[in-house]
Design a protein around this nucleic acid. Structure first.
Lengths: 383, 383
DNA sequence: CATCACTGTGGTAACGATGCCACATCCGAT
DNA sequence: ATCGGATGTGGCATCGTTACCACAGTGATG
């Protein structure tokens, strides 16, 4: 006990200084188990015949000498790999982080590992990422695409591709999408149901399936309520919260009749929320705010933001499942596209439009008591 | 033009249906360039002599036939790899997400790619992740460790290891740590400066360098202010927000004299914040709240949370830099540990203790006007 | 008893790249 | 004229693994 510089179970402590010792290969393993490398290979991989007794012996020997198969040699020879590429836009954005987490969990439990590349939303970086995937010979790639080039490259190379969240390249590959139309329609309907008639949509793009779908859902909800479609209430903005903030300010200066605001994603919602606060507007008394995509801050602020939960975890897990199906299922399968049904989470940021209220507000005394906490769906807290 | 089912630049359109065509190897490339594989290899890798004219020809040919070197074969033969493993606890937690993002950005620009494995805070999963890293022959691994087993395994295998955020295994490997003592001392000092004397610390562990350092900083600040160290004010809790919520409730029931609360990380801060709101306490009038680790919701709520910004991006980039230095620098270098200096971000959640105020509060009328937005350090918004 | 299917094992040749060596020039210096 | 170094190229073996084939034994079947 005395003067032990490093605490160690004692089991494998002796090799402390032997740094560059050669790693055991399947040859060493075979020798240790008293059989040939071929048999050792079969014993570990489970392909071909091996006597049960021998298999046990090999596994024990592997444990004993600390044998870990070389994935590079294995991939090279077998022309397959357990690596799956994940190409996303911005892992700092909770949407992408959750997506990646869902993918990683599911794939890890299926025995694959994940190579993550950020593309920062830039097509060149995306192509660069695809090249990386080709270089390491991933057997599949899950992409939130920004252009179709990466998808094409990979599919040309025989890599199983799943487009996640949006599809830029038709139905050439598998895909998992959120039912944006449904979600947007439902949450717009929620506002309509509260009595709103001047509902603005803050949106950054309508070219991808995401933006297009959310716009369509918004329109469908207005149409089915018999409300007029005022094109000036569809407010274009760039993707940054700052841009959204300005856009909202400009809108509210221009159109004081607006009573509800629908931000098409979490970044825009962030900007919109800040804009409303900076203008000193009370939510929902002066203006109702809803968003698409539920992220943590939306349940932390008061009032909480009413939003569309895309079930991003499930989105990720579904992508992973498609990958596994594709790699382990029959080769003939046609491209499949799965849809995630989003759900509306009603919190405190939505209420009847101010014109329907008796006066302008019910007085600030109730401000504190209205601050209720809606924790929302808890992400699994681990460390 | 008419009836073109797939739009394609036309360059390589003819191969639409030829799925299982063989990928070009360096043999094909050599043939296309009219030279030997050896020369092609040298031309691309830059090792050894190649005539400038030939190199250009090879590069052109590679572009032409779409040659991408096989990383598996390359790793196998050269016994090196451009893969770096990143083993973190929970990518859904913005702290880890930012860390991973910083690492990925930096390593990608240095020509490496990143394999991400979540361990969900579980030692077995961590060891499993280390095994994955060994299998794919990563040349380095960056780990936020939960036990020392994975670190040991990898180092034994000759993998360059960087322990990030905390060190469980002495100075055997490189590491990047946040100066927890400094940060905790500074933010506790901020509370002391406001006049607080009964400051509770909400903390989940004190075994790792993180928890131990934050506790030490908290104590140091009290000591240097000549305040008594009341052990009952150090409140242990589990890592989950729910646990923190209960812990805070129990604390406030027991000790109504507490005027300030210091949550040792973002998860505990989340729980603490919810607890205060559910109890209807006003922040900072009734109680001041501070945290360690700045995450997005803290600048979205009002008042914003005064917190210690750990510069997580920089933490990640520094880890990546250590990896690059280690892999590309001289082999003799001793283990180095870098420290990140955190900084206190003062927002609205801290004020003088209630006993120092004239009455109990200054009236709810000012509630709205106090709602100012502090956007905080903007994460780069991309898509 | 011959045949055959099945089980089980080992030998050999790849997978695709590169490190190393041999060799072939060409130049300037001895 | 000869040597030595710098420059440039090709051949060969090899990294660690697995696919494939050959072959041996066993038991069942005609």
């Amino acid at each position: 006990m005395a003067r032990t510089p490093e605490r160690d179970g004692g089991a494998s402590a002796r090799r402390a200084a032997a740094r560059p010792r050669r790693r055991p290969t399947i040859q060493d393993l075979a020798q240790a188990a008293g059989i040939s490398p071929s048999t050792a290979s079969r014993a570990l991989s489970g392909n071909g015949y091996v006597a049960a007794e021998v298999r046990a012996r090999v596994i024990a020997a592997a444990e004993q000498i600390g044998y870990v198969p070389d994935g590079n040699a294995r991939s090279l020879r077998s022309r397959t790999s357990r690596a799956v590429g994940v190409l996303i836009s911005d892992i700092r954005n909770p949407f992408y982080a959750n997506l990646a987490a869902g993918i990683e969990e599911q794939l890890r439990s299926a025995g694959y590992h994940v190579i993550v590349v950020n593309n920062d939303g830039q097509p060149e970086a995306e192509v660069e990422g695809a090249r990386t995937f080709m270089a390491v010979r991933v057997s599949a790639a899950i992409i939130t695409p920004v252009s179709n080039r990466a998808v094409r490259m990979l599919m040309n190379d025989g890599v199983a591709v799943v487009q996640a969240d949006r599809m830029v390249d038709g139905a050439t590959s598998d895909g998992v999408l959120v039912d944006n139309v449904q979600g947007a329609q439902e949450i717009t309907g929620h506002l309509v149901g509260l009595g709103h008639t001047a509902i603005a949509l803050l949106i950054d793009e309508t070219d991808w399936t995401t933006g297009a779908g959310r716009l369509a859902g918004y329109r469908a909800a207005l149409r089915s309520a018999g409300l007029p479609m005022d094109p000036a209430l569809v407010v274009p903005t760039r993707f940054q919260p700052e841009a959204a903030r300005s856009a909202v300010n400009a809108l509210l200066d221009r159109r004081p009749d607006v009573t509800a605001l629908f931000a098409a994603n979490n970044m825009l919602a962030e900007g919109a929320f800040q804009a409303l606060r900076l203008r000193g507007l009370r939510v929902p008394e002066d203006l109702s705010l809803v968003a698409f995509d539920d992220v943590p801050w939306m349940s932390m602020v008061s009032p909480g933001i009413t939003t569309v939960d895309q079930h991003t975890d499930q989105l990720g897990r579904t992508c992973a499942q498609l990958v596994v199906d594709r790699l382990e299922g029959p080769a003939t399968e046609a491209a499949t596209v799965r849809y995630i049904e989003p759900s509306v989470v009603v919190r405190g940021s939505t209420g009847p439009p101010r014109t329907l209220l008796p006066a302008s507000a019910e007085g600030p005394a109730s401000t504190v008591s209205r601050r209720t906490v809606t924790p929302g769906p808890r992400r699994r807290p681990t460390r």
